[in-house]
Design a protein around this nucleic acid. Structure first.
Lengths: 154, 154
DNA sequence: CTGGTTGCAAACGGTTTGCAAGGCA
DNA sequence: TGCCTTGCAAACCGTTTGCAACCAG
């Protein structure tokens, strides 16, 4: 709910500016994580364009406010998605770079890691489980360094 | 074993050049994933310096040959580690950015994902499980956007 | 007046590309 | 000769920084 996000912002004394509102709308309208360039393109498409610096700064703020979450999926660009979504992980297509959500249980895994990190005195704050491969559309297509398939925007 | 790596290269008809040998040595000498800038610094420290383009190209090649593997841990730089290591995952310190290996079993998880990805017709080729938090050294230190602690090199 | 938001321009740093030089079969 | 490896310079692109303008309390 967009409303829940706005509430979170209010609770954290973060002003709800037009740009922040538009960013949150974009996240709510998307079923996959979005990169900063993604967001900029989508703003542009809506005719509302915003400076990239502002987008960066607002995302950092939204992350600190616990509204969005960083997704570690790509070493080329930074991805974010709504925090409110039920905890899940990702399938990442190595060819078109589309990202699919997967709702999976990892209780067993967490227990094991918990014991392990205690020994190291490492305090875990978040975790990510990512699977890489080829989505249905990209299977069978020729994949090569040269002919890397770049899909419009996702 | 360095020998196993060289064998893999030979099998794939990839010539063993001095630079490739030195890169493999660095990976064998390290207990954590290395970024390209890391590798360059370490080469420099050994007095053997190599052009960054060559490092990039050789890593791509080593990856294709199945000798090293990309680690999706950071959106700032690309990390690699030896493929031969027994399958494992990572603890990533959000403050100093050190990376710890964790040997964990995830059979249950894999089964669930397998069923899920079949429905989507998504073919998984690799997966990554990453945990983010604070290592023992960084706990208690003040963490802020401004005062981000950058640790020497790892 | 003050603090916070935005935009703009420039810098920064990791990554990629094109080209030329050198080595080896 | 031809292929592969390397280095160098420049381009590229996502990200960061500093500064000025602006707006709201």
């Amino acid at each position: 709910m967009l409303k829940d996000c706005l509430l979170k912002l209010e609770k954290n004394k973060v002003k709800v500016t037009p740009l922040r509102c538009r960013l949150l709308e974009l996240f709510h309208a998307s079923d996959a994580p979005l990169s900063i360039p993604d967001l900029q393109k989508r703003l542009e498409a809506k005719g509302s364009r915003a400076n990239k610096t502002s987008v960066y700064r607002n995302l950092e703020l939204l992350e600190m406010a616990g509204v969005v979450e960083k997704v570690s999926v790509s070493d080329e660009s930074r991805y974010y998605e709504l925090m409110e979504r039920t905890h899940h992980h990702h399938l990442v297509c190595l060819s078109c770079e589309r990202i699919f959500d997967i709702p999976i249980q990892e209780t067993k895994l967490l227990q094991t890691v918990d014991a392990f990190s205690k020994k190291l005195q490492f305090t875990i704050s978040r975790h990510a489980v990512e699977f890489y491969g080829l989505c249905s559309k990209c299977q069978g297509r020729k994949i090569s360094r040269k002919a890397k398939i770049r899909v419009q925007s996702h």
